[in-house]
Structure formats: C-alpha cells, structure tokens
C-alpha cells in the first residue's frame, strides 16, 4: 500500500464540554475511495469541518500531504476539494460567476478548465443563469464543480449525492471512480446511504458517537452472497452441505456465500440432480446488516 495522503491522529473535538469527536485516527490513501458511514449526529460533518480547517482541533493532528491543517493551512488545503453539507453558492450570481469567484482563490485555474468542469457536471446549458433559479440537484452539481475546479488530489464530499437524480448519481459514481483510478485522487465520501457506499467505495470507516468503531475494505464480488429458491428443499440442502457450501436457510430460501462466476456451475449441478430452480439473486445487504448491528439500529444518541 502506498503512503497515506491524509492522516488524522487522535483527533478530538470538544464543544462546551461535549465530546463530538473522540480520539479518532484514520489514514486515507491515493486512488482509494473511502466511505465515511454513520447515523445522524455521529460526527461526520464535524470531522469534515475539522479536516478542512473550518473548526479548530481540541487535540490531535490532521495532516494532508504532510502539511498540518492547523499550522500550515494554506499549503495543506491547496490540494483539497470539498463539499460540506449542502454547497451554498452565491445565489445572486450566475453559476459561472460563482466558479470564476472560486477559481480566483486557487492557483492556475484557466477558463478552459472551468468550461471543462461545467461540462463534466452537465451544467453547460444553465451555467449563465442565476443560482437562485437552480434546482437542488443543479446546485449539488455546481457544488461538485467548485470542488473539482483546481484538480484536487484529495476530495472530501459530505453527502454529495443528496438531491441528485439516479442518472446523476450514476454519472457521479463513474466519475469518482475514474478520477480515483486515472488521477490517483484520494476520495473521502460521507453518507448514511449504505447501498451508495457499497457501490462507490473501496473501503469504509464507520463512526458512531464521535468514535471510529470500524474500518474495513469492501470486497465487492469475492464474498458475494446469493439467494437461492429451489425445490425439493432436502435435496438441495444435502447437496450444499455435502459440497462444502457455506449457507443458511430462511423460510425455505437458501442464503449462500458464492462468487458470481461460480453461479452457472452450481445451477448446472443442481439441474443435473432434477432440482427445480425458481430464483437465484445476489444479496447486497451484508454491510447494511453489519451497520445496523454495530450502530444499534439507527438510534441517534
């Protein structure tokens, strides 16, 4: 694994005696998309605010490319693109003027680059209209554009797909994947939409009550689970047990650990044994189940 681009060490934030972030340590790597998962009020946005210098650390350190956010702010933030909660733009100006505004605060953002980003987020037609006339999703797209403007090496996105339509989310996901792979950008995405994190991220960090409670890689297809509905029940059960499949049963349905590429083989075997197959489908709820289990079913504490 390459060297981390971002390091949070023992990050703690206390406001008025309340510990919002508790001794949180985390490393983020180039080319990797890390999901930041947690129930409402867990401290995701607070962590993002600390990482971008909007809030001061009570203790601990955050470094980005070796520069401390507390002591060397301008250097640390120069390669960061960020969306914190809803991107609030200057409503009384056009989207384009907003981008000009932010581009002037970075080094070397050309007009061509602005046009390129506008095209990338699909706002070309409306970019010269006032932001006050934009829909929620369009504002979100503009927010993404301002975060990407200066070609950052590290992207922090707090609830970025909030308000995007399905096509928008899909494009967005593809685009994130593309810049992670091609430009080696490190991406940190907070969300409480598990399915989204599962689809989008390589790795997930789970936060609750300001504490990091879990951190793991997401193995997308190696450990996929399949739902199987087939009869007769005993025959299938015997076959699976005797062939060392890992499975459980639930109301006559089999849940088994099986990679996608092994599915045709299993079907062929079962058919050869005169088993009737009604349905085989992939299950994507592992992370969700784990998440609910870990965080206690979404109680806001």
């Amino acid at each position: 694994m390459s060297k981390p681009i971002v390091e949070l060490k023992n990050v703690t934030k206390i406001i008025k005696g309340k510990t919002l972030i508790d001794n949180l340590s985390l490393e983020l790597f180039p080319g990797q998309i890390t999901g930041f998962l947690g129930p409402n009020g867990a401290g995701k946005t607070t962590t993002v605010r600390l990482m971008t210098g909007l809030m001061r650390l009570t203790s601990g350190t955050i470094t980005i490319e070796g520069a401390s956010i507390a002591d060397d702010y301008e250097k640390a933030i120069s390669n960061v693109g960020v969306i914190v909660e809803n991107p609030e733009m200057y409503k009384y100006m056009s989207g384009y003027k907003n981008l000009i505004h932010f581009s002037r605060m970075h080094k070397d953002v050309s007009k061509e680059r602005i046009d390129e980003v506008v095209k990338q987020v699909g706002l070309t037609k409306r970019i010269n209209e006032k932001v006050s006339t934009y829909s929620l999703g369009m504002r979100q797209r503009l927010g993404l554009a301002q975060a990407l403007l200066h070609d950052p090496k590290f992207l922090i996105l707090d609830e970025p797909t909030n308000g995007l339509d399905p096509a928008g989310i899909r494009e967005f996901r593809t685009y994130l994947r593309k810049i992670a792979v091609e430009n080696n950008v490190s991406i940190f995405v907070s969300s409480h939409l598990l399915s989204e994190i599962e689809l989008m991220c390589d790795r997930v960090a789970v936060i609750q009550n300001g504490k990091l409670i879990d951190e793991r890689m997401i193995q997308s297809d190696e450990k996929a689970r399949m739902k199987l509905k087939a009869e007769p029940f005993e025959l299938v059960e015997n076959y699976l047990s005797s062939n060392d499949y890992v499975f459980t049963t639930q109301e006559g349905i089999f849940l088994l650990e099986l990679k996608e590429d092994k599915v045709p083989d299993l079907i062929n075997e079962l058919v050869a044994q005169q088993v009737q197959i009604f349905a085989v489908s992939a299950v994507h709820e592992t992370l969700e189940e784990q998440f609910l289990q870990m965080t206690g079913g979404g109680q806001i504490v």
Binding site: E74, I77, V80, V84, E88, M89, Y90, M105
Partner: peptide, 12 residues
C-alpha cells in the same frame, strides 16, 4: 447565507 464555508476552504 452559509457561503462562508465555501470561502474559507481555499488556500487563502
């Protein structure tokens, strides 16, 4: 307006 967070997360 909430725009302050956009303004202050720049290398300035």
């Amino acid at each position: 307006d909430g725009t302050i967070k956009m303004l202050l997360t720049r290398p300035v």
